[in-house]
């Protein structure tokens, strides 16, 4: 079985890359903007899936790393004129370090307590940034136009951001896959199922969890750096948006928690649905309510999400869809 496994990862990466190339080839800026968002959500959802789906820790306020990455990178670019790519990497490393520092104490909490702690940390960070004058306080920071000159102008900068976001999404998905198929991933899943048993078979749960948390913080930080670079403005509200955090969780559940493809499917579906509802005159007003209803139906009746249900329904697919 194992050896007959389809080349799932290469196929998946080629697929994502091909989709990402469409707006470039067809020179369609509005599609590019839409896909930028989808790729970002794929990154967020896949990252959350590592800590939530594989490890079983519901990181409700996970968006905090998106915000931290965004803020540090933005500050570096605006104040020191650091190149975007450098700033992005330079922001993801401290974000990962912060994840390690936060993770060591809060990953000892279980269940609802952990979820609440992550909300608290995100809100603490948001209210802190609102007061932190070096980062612009409540008003936030914004670029002067000249910042984009070194990339050849605002249009070129938007392309650079798009390519970067695509690369980040690909890297996240690849990492998610590698973890899922690795011994490390198996240790995470064992922890998810029963931490005490995991410990009794020789797994150091504290270490494994912190590693998972750090990895799942790294990519959202990169995504935050890229998002706000393209945006040209960063404020506490959008950077630490709890609703977006919860939406990413919803995408994971919609697509299939604990699977590699699930968060991708969930992110694409969620965004497509949102676009559909907003532009549809009958539904536009009830966009949120319908999203809520669909979420409820999924939670109540399709617990494993789309990908998970497919895998359960057709065990043969298990070899092909991770």
């Amino acid at each position: 079985m194992r050896d007959l496994r389809a080349p799932f990862l290469p196929a998946l990466l080629v697929f994502i890359a091909a989709v990402a190339a469409i707006p470039i080839v067809s020179n369609n800026p509005s599609l590019r903007e839409e896909l930028f968002l989808v790729l970002m959500l794929v990154t967020l959802a896949s990252s959350i899936n590592i800590i939530m789906g594989y490890t079983g820790y519901v990181s409700f306020g996970h968006i905090v790393f998106f915000g931290i990455g965004g803020y540090i990178a933005f500050w570096l670019m605006q104040t020191f004129n650091v190149h975007f790519l450098l700033a992005a990497i330079a922001s993801a490393i401290p974000a990962a370090l912060i994840a390690a520092l936060i993770g060591i104490p809060i990953l000892r909490l279980r269940g609802a307590y952990f979820a609440l702690a992550t909300v608290g940390i995100n809100e603490a960070m948001k209210s802190f940034m609102t007061n932190f004058e070096p980062f612009g306080g409540a008003i936030g920071m914004f670029f002067s136009f000249s910042i984009y000159l070194q990339y050849g102008g605002a249009r070129e900068a938007a392309f650079l951001a798009y390519y970067t976001m695509a690369a980040i999404a690909l890297a996240t998905v690849a990492t998610s896959y590698v973890i899922r198929r690795s011994k490390f991933g198996l240790s995470l899943m064992a922890i998810r199922e029963d931490q005490d048993v995991a410990m009794l078979v020789g797994i150091d749960p504290a270490r494994a969890k912190v590693m998972a948390y750090v990895i799942s913080a790294f990519f959202p930080a990169l995504a935050g750096a890229t998002f706000f670079f393209k945006n040209g403005i960063i404020e506490p509200g959008p950077a630490f948006d709890l609703l977006r955090s919860i939406e990413s969780l919803v995408m994971v559940v919609l697509g299939g928690i604990g699977t590699v493809a699930g968060p991708i499917v969930g992110a694409a579906l969620y965004e497509w649905l949102r676009g559909f509802l907003i532009t549809n005159p009958t539904f536009a007003n009830f966009q949120l309510a319908i999203a809520g209803l669909l979420l409820l139906l999924t939670v109540l009746f399709v617990t494993a999400g789309l990908v998970g249900s497919l895998r359960n329904r057709f065990p043969r697919l298990r070899a092909y869809i991770q």
Binding site: L249, V253, A289, G292, L296
Partner: peptide
């Protein structure tokens, strides 16, 4: 996670 999302869906519906 399930109950969090179930009640969150109610949140969305009410707000919506």
């Amino acid at each position: 996670l399930t109950t969090l999302l179930a009640t969150f869906s109610v949140n969305l519906m009410i707000i919506g």
